[in-house]
Design a binder for these strands. Sequence first.
DNA 1: CATGAATGAGCCTTCATTCAT
DNA 2: CATGAATGAAGGCTCATTCAT
Lengths: 195, 195, 195, 195
Amino acid sequence: MKNPGKTRERIVRVATELFANKGFDRATVDEIVAKAGVAKGTFYLYFRSKEDLIKEIAFDVMPIMAMPSLQDPYITVNYPTLESYLIHLGKEFLSFYSKGYRAELFFHMLSLRRRMPAVDEIYKQACSELLREGARRISAYIKVSFEDALISFQIFLASLIHYFHARECLDFSEEYFLKRVVRVVLHHLKLSVSV
Amino acid sequence: MKNPGKTRERIVRVATELFANKGFDRATVDEIVAKAGVAKGTFYLYFRSKEDLIKEIAFDVMPIMAMPSLQDPYITVNYPTLESYLIHLGKEFLSFYSKGYRAELFFHMLSLRRRMPAVDEIYKQACSELLREGARRISAYIKVSFEDALISFQIFLASLIHYFHARECLDFSEEYFLKRVVRVVLHHLKLSVSV
Amino acid sequence: MKNPGKTRERIVRVATELFANKGFDRATVDEIVAKAGVAKGTFYLYFRSKEDLIKEIAFDVMPIMAMPSLQDPYITVNYPTLESYLIHLGKEFLSFYSKGYRAELFFHMLSLRRRMPAVDEIYKQACSELLREGARRISAYIKVSFEDALISFQIFLASLIHYFHARECLDFSEEYFLKRVVRVVLHHLKLSVSV
Amino acid sequence: MKNPGKTRERIVRVATELFANKGFDRATVDEIVAKAGVAKGTFYLYFRSKEDLIKEIAFDVMPIMAMPSLQDPYITVNYPTLESYLIHLGKEFLSFYSKGYRAELFFHMLSLRRRMPAVDEIYKQACSELLREGARRISAYIKVSFEDALISFQIFLASLIHYFHARECLDFSEEYFLKRVVRVVLHHLKLSVSV
DNA sequence: CATGAATGAGCCTTCATTCAT
DNA sequence: CATGAATGAAGGCTCATTCAT
């Protein structure tokens, strides 16, 4: 064993970068193994096919992975206000997609899912769960209908995602943009609150 | 001459559909010409390369194409209120991307631009112009800072785009979703109005 | 059109030779196209896959192809005696498999059919039809049970086939061997004739 | 040591089955070791190469292995008549090839010998020896020319071999078919006997 | 304008073999 | 004796593009 347990990891790492830069189709297995410094055969020792690796990497950039706090039932105790909680979620989200070419991969994944049913399925599940859970959390903070919460969370999410394909067209910093988006959502929720 | 002047158009049409379904890389020139009922050579009579056709089709699904009203200086006379105007823009946008596989192509384009500088350039321009023009229009209706208008329009746009990759995860109709998004934006703008 | 209708034919011809010499698996598409003087792509213009070409060539060496007289209803008028008819069939058979590497291909086909159901199916059909038709012809010459005719024809056929994998171990000429085999069959049939 | 001295044997056994089902080329070392439950390296501990194993297995299905009685100088004392002796030889032959995928392997071997000189050599030797020895035995029973005996034995052998690639096309049992073939041979020999 | 046979670089994948442990 | 990660040559196949007709 030359690099105990590191070969597979290295392949995934360089593949992630190549896929991000060139797209899933244009990045070749040849390039991946060359950059990873392994032989072609080694690739197929760890992955049954290029498609298998694509799936693995695509699954890892699902939006639900970007908001782990949404899964933690006790997290809200640290955030007394909805505003602080949304800011926290937003930061998680933005920093997740800012790392390791994930934003680029996310858009490649969105393009990919049309021809990879497995990816499409996972995306739809991930998306549903994310929206529903987000809405549930909002409902815990403020007394609004589930639908109002859902619309609000969707707009919140949409804006964050949009940031990644429009950031070059604007001059807002992540931080500032997030603050403004949260404000918009809160304005709406407060006006929707049932008295 | 079988279909005077129609050959090129037919190629674009079938290519659009194939690109939407299979992605720009996976749809082949062979499939395109087969479906268009022309010979391989004919394709290269109208397009210098597959990439040329891709660019042409990619350019046609830029978001700025989806809101022609934004270019028309006299359109606002028909929409006395900001709400009615945003509803109009939203309908334009949603109906544009609902037709002819444009929503699918839009996401393929977003993936594509990483490796096609020409597409990237156009997208950034289109996006900047769209956001800036949208903000300008909002400013014409209501007295808010340009930045507030920009954030609002961006959220408006982001939500509409998001609708196309989350519509399967939700139960909202286009119409209803649009109404709700406009309401969120208006809530925010009214609270941001400078008195 | 450089070689009207000849390219495909040339590929089949050189493939036949290569398959015969190296076996279906060991002869590569690269070798075939190199020897045929065409590009790799050209191969796939005429054959969907290597397997398709293999099937085509395998079908052409089925034993039934080696005895066309068996299909001709009027042929027996030229051969007044069973002996002369069997000699004729035998010559047809031996000369068929002596040409164009067919004997070698026949044995490759016999090995191949275990893993290619389509070939297996065709072989079993071809074999059944050949045996049954041969027996029917014998019955037309001499009054024996169909079973006796069947056994006789099978032994006749088996001996001819065997000639191709044992000819190097013996010193018999085709002609002489055939004469002797026919004699054996006739001896048997005459002793089996129902009086 | 898990199974003292059994590893090599197990490899041969599973390889035999895989080779029979998939052919020598299509069965891989990977499959063999997986099915044998040993590591890749272990295979190369017992065999210098895949080809070595192929040779070994190919040698074991040579037709001469199927008639051990032919090597035993005293066996004929148990079979007073030529008929009983031929029946005995035939049974030996048929039961040999009915066991352990040997019939399948025999045809793969026949295909293989074109590209493996060592196998070709052995096959020709085995075949010559078998035919000559068979003819010699016949001559010991009945007073015919060596050539008549040779032809007879060849037809006997050919029919038995043919049984293995035509049995699916007929309805004869092994036993019955053998009896009929022996009868044909005897008819011929008796008519050829020198008086 | 239109054709379609021909091209060949390049892709994904397989598999016999090696070697450090 | 035994392991299994690593290798890389070689295989089958695809596809954008050209060009003679």
